[in-house]
Nucleic acid binder design. Structure first.
Length: 426
RNA sequence: GGAGAAGUAACCAAGAGGCUGAAGGUAUCGGACUUGAAAUCCGACAGGUCGGGCAACCGGCGCGGGGGUUCAAAUCCCCCCUUCUCCGCCA
């Protein structure tokens, strides 16, 4: 969401940004917003003037009543009533225009960073850098569920019976490995100076609207029947939402938080739920990192944050690469975003395991979160989020990359304390 | 889930339809007194947001949130939220 004043003064920049994102259907929105804004201000000017008069006269009535001059008071009353209908009419129009304006504003995408490569969809995302050798062993790597089954670590059939497609039971050492990865990731971020947090897993609709675009919401969020509550799709939602309507003292920035939560996603849209395995499912768990900072610091944090994801995966002996999102693949609120992809020796390609985003001030504006500076002025902070680790999916990378020729799975040193000292699964 | 009570500024707290755009106090800041400090005295101290204006400034909204009644609402009515106490239920 952009500042209306920015749209007013930079209409062509906003239009070009829409073109850069291959969303030409949204181009008319710019002029519609500018027209609604003009009407909004005209209506406000008239109605506020009328209200000012009414306020002034009402005070006079009060004074006259106090002096016992009832007749004079009645005369003024009649005068005030005369404008009543017009005020009501304009007040109603003011609401309509504001609602329409807000609705359209929500659809206009955030201005992307100049460094973002232009492209129409995910096929045009750009590989920036690789970390670690993408090795292909000389023995076959089975499908990840097959590896898990060897350790009696997964029961998809039962999950299907109990919850349907898109759910899993993890069992035994595989379930333990899942928890070990989460615990390791949590401690990894605590060591980076982040504050650990367990947030609510359900949030109000206005918070959902504040943290994501309407289209993302439709494709992702589960609503609780009969309540104004949604299951979170990521703890980012409750962690950024934490600041709704808040004025944050500048000296508490940057806020660096790492949160654990299960994540619930409909996965409607382009991909849908995969037939087999735990790659794309309706429920998974995730350790997340979020940062709220001064605008001038957000790009520095962005660089830092994705590098931590790389560091974490490398510490588990998993080769990764950084893939930058092109303009067309960038969600509407984002200024810049990249994925960290892990190497799959089975498929001999990389697949997404982390997503790091700089949202600029878009979430802050929607949520009305502000920072109070030392000089007393308020401004909008920037918000960022990044996956630390999302285990069911990362377990795919983990199992494939640590599988040995004899069928055992090597446990990297950093995870052993969380696995009761085990060096391998066999 | 049921019954009560309460939500006013950083904090405590008055106010119960109209000179309240919000008393008073604590804290904070500035000043006087003092060698300095304390104490005392004087002064400042209601935010946030939107609209207009180059600006000084003017105006709208605003007393948990949202509606309503009224010329006028912190004050009356309705709905909701939160907190506290008691009961019930429960990991």
């Amino acid at each position: 969401m952009l500042d209306i004043k920015f749209i007013r003064d930079n209409a062509e920049t906003v239009r070009q940004n829409i073109r850069n994102k291959y969303q030409d259907a949204k181009l008319p929105l710019v002029d519609e917003v500018i027209a609604l804004d003009a009407e909004n201000r005209a209506v406000k000017q008239e109605v506020e003037e009328l209200r000012a008069t009414r306020n002034r006269l009402s005070k006079e009535i009060g004074k006259l009543m106090g002096q016992g001059k009832r007749d004079e008071a009645e005369k003024v009353k009649a005068e005030v009533s005369a404008d009543g209908a017009r005020i009501d009419e304009l007040t109603a129009r003011e609401r309509e225009v504001e609602a329409a304006l807000h609705k359209k504003m929500l659809l206009i995408p955030n201005i992307i960073d100049p460094s973002v490569p232009l492209g129409k969809d995910d096929s045009e995302n750009v590989e920036v850098e690789r970390f670690g050798e993408p090795l292909v062993p000389d023995f076959p790597i089975p499908y990840h569920t097959e590896i898990m089954e060897r350790f009696h670590g997964i029961d998809m059939d039962a999950a299907g019976r109990v919850s349907g497609n898109g759910f899993y039971y993890l069992m035994g050492d595989i379930a333990r490995l899942h928890e070990a990865v989460i615990a390791y990731a949590r401690d990894f971020m605590i060591d980076k100076g982040f504050t650990f947090c367990i947030p609510p897993f359900m949030i109000h609709g206005n918070v959902v609207e504040g943290v994501m675009s309407q289209s993302d919401m439709d494709a992702m969020m589960y609503k609780i029947e009969g309540e104004d509550l949604y299951l979170i799709g990521t703890s980012e939602h409750s962690m950024i939402g934490k600041f709704i309507d808040q004025i944050i003292p500048e000296d508490t920035l940057p806020q660096t938080l790492t949160s654990y939560s299960p994540c619930f996603r409909k996965e409607k849209g382009a991909h849908g739920i995969e037939e087999r395995g735990v790659y794309r499912i309706h429920q998974f768990e995730k350790q997340e990192m979020i940062v709220v900072c001064r605008p001038e610091d957000s790009m520095k944090w962005y660089e830092q944050m994705w590098r931590w994801s790389v560091e974490l995966f490398r510490s588990l002996d998993i080769p990764v690469r950084q893939l930058e999102c092109c303009s067309g693949d960038l969600a509407d609120l984002k200024v810049k975003s990249c994925d960290i992809e892990a190497w799959s020796p089975r498929q001999q390609k990389y697949f997404e395991v982390c997503s790091c985003s700089n949202l600029g001030d878009a979430q802050a504006r929607r949520l009305k979160m502000r920072v109070k500076g030392a000089d007393g002025r308020t401004y909008l902070p920037h918000t960022l989020n990044n996956t630390v680790v999302a285990p069911p999916r990362m377990l795919i990378a983990f199992l494939e990359n640590n599988l040995q020729a004899d069928g055992s799975v090597l446990i990297p040193e950093v995870l052993r304390p969380y696995m009761g000292g085990k060096e391998k699964l066999q």
